[in-house]
Write a protein that binds this DNA or RNA. Sequence first.
DNA 1: ATGCTTTTTTATCATTTGTCAATTTTTAAA
DNA 2: TTTAAAAATTGACAAATGATAAAAAAGCAT
Lengths: 187, 187
Amino acid sequence: MEKFLELLNEQYQLKDEQIRVLLNAFEKVEIQKNEFLLLAGNVARKVYLVDKGVIRVFSDDGNQESTRRIAFENEFATSFDSFINQTPSSESIQALEDGILYALSYINFRKLNETVPAWRAFYINRIEQAFTLHYGRIEAFQSMTAKERYDALISQRPQMIARLSNKVLASYLGITQESLSRIKSKV
Amino acid sequence: MEKFLELLNEQYQLKDEQIRVLLNAFEKVEIQKNEFLLLAGNVARKVYLVDKGVIRVFSDDGNQESTRRIAFENEFATSFDSFINQTPSSESIQALEDGILYALSYINFRKLNETVPAWRAFYINRIEQAFTLHYGRIEAFQSMTAKERYDALISQRPQMIARLSNKVLASYLGITQESLSRIKSKV
DNA sequence: ATGCTTTTTTATCATTTGTCAATTTTTAAA
DNA sequence: TTTAAAAATTGACAAATGATAAAAAAGCAT
């Protein structure tokens, strides 16, 4: 939590009391590789801040897995639609490495929004950023080939290539593992 | 503006003073078909609420147009990244029909966020919805064929098929006009 | 280290989508 | 209405990506 609180404090000058409230709102969770944090069909009760490790949000229609979001250290992730509306999720969440997360429940999320203005400002800022990130993905799907999307990802988010398996990376790019393998072997 | 104010009032019970502030923040704009509201390279100074007509946000790399967002009556649109960060836009905004818009400048947008809690709540709600909408498009690009995306659009946003030209619709779906034409002629 | 499982690569062929060109249809202007 | 411009359709072919199967490589547990 330290790095996250630092960041928040830098931008929004927290009072001690607010820091205490924030710290109490989060719960530390230790996870093992491949462990599930949410199974499709259930309601996403928490949003996770990654302290160490990698988690992914994905859907599985039986034929195909689609990786929607990858969160590395100091990033947040949940099944957003499910979390915000507290409705059953079409997505699952899984750890890709052993790690440490800080979980914020929906109830505490709402409480923070109502009682800690700095948190609310931070949340608005984060959702604006997340929107922009996802918007960029639409741009990529609309106007780039798979190879171009892969090359763009290398330069924009090199961790994605370095830390993810071919299988997960392919499902993030919206292509098959075989296609990704061919793309990588091209110059 | 009436319908929008009604909606806002329903959800957040506005005081007369707040309604006055809101009305003053927006400026009525009449537009003609094909008129540009923003040209790529400039900063998006306004967000537009569509009262009548259709506008589209799109990019053009010289080879290809990509339609990123279509806004019909009672929907908002701007080049989001540019508007929020007040940086040059990679996108243009254009009217697809004669129409009437209400424009909110960046300065007034910030003012409303700071001074009208109901507006802020409304904004958070809208950006959450917009996020979910765009998230759904990523889902579509990741796991559906062009034909499947087209069929899904028919059932989810029939206006898109009814009111848009083939050219615009194809660029929204991320395919060529020719492909769209073939998709439509299939059963 | 050994053997088992999973992941990655490679090959072949099928399908989808794009490109280019020509034609038809629709729209808009004179 | 007539005519010019823009949009939509169609055809032939090319390129990109998917599906299936098999082999090679890497990871993991014993």
